[in-house]
């Protein structure tokens, strides 16, 4: 990857908003990739597309190249690449793969049934 960490979008630091029940939670996402492989690029592209569609203006995505930061793999318990970690909102999730299965990505991000979903926070 050209960029080590890419803050794609930074939104409001409003805690009230993140805990609100309106399906407007603040998403904190981390994508761990292993160098500039096709798979890494594909995952990033797919993810960006989904984020733009569903989480516009309320997500924070950090892309981390494990080759540059190998020690992070242990701390974050990462084994597969690419791995997307949804730190917030809870529950904590790992979404692995190149994100080509959009349905599953949405499921992993709890965006699929976002209307009916009761937030546990």
């Amino acid at each position: 990857m050209k960029e080590k960490k890419t803050k794609v979008k930074s939104s409001l630091d409003d805690l009230d908003l993140t805990v609100s029940n309106q399906g407007k939670e603040q998403y904190i996402l981390r994508l761990y990739i292993t160098g500039s492989t096709i798979r890494s690029a594909l995952a990033l592209t797919n993810l960006k597309k989904i984020c733009k569609e569903y989480l516009e203006g309320r997500y924070e995505l950090e892309v981390i190249d494990l080759y540059q930061h190998p020690s992070l793999a242990k701390g974050e318990q990462i084994i597969a690449a690419p791995t997307l970690i949804k730190k917030l909102p809870l529950p904590f999730r790992r979404i692995i793969g190149d994100m080509s299965d959009k349905e599953k990505v949405l499921l992993g991000l709890d965006l699929k049934e976002v209307k009916e979903k009761i937030d546990f926070q």
């Binding site: 798979r39 494990l66 190998p70 990462i78 084994i79 690449a81 790992r94 793969g97 190149d98």
Partner: peptide, 21 residues
Amino acid sequence: SEIEETGEYDLEALFIRLGYA
């Protein structure tokens, strides 16, 4: 329960992790 598979992946992260150690 935390894991969702969304396509092709590999265990390169594990390799990196082990290699780093």
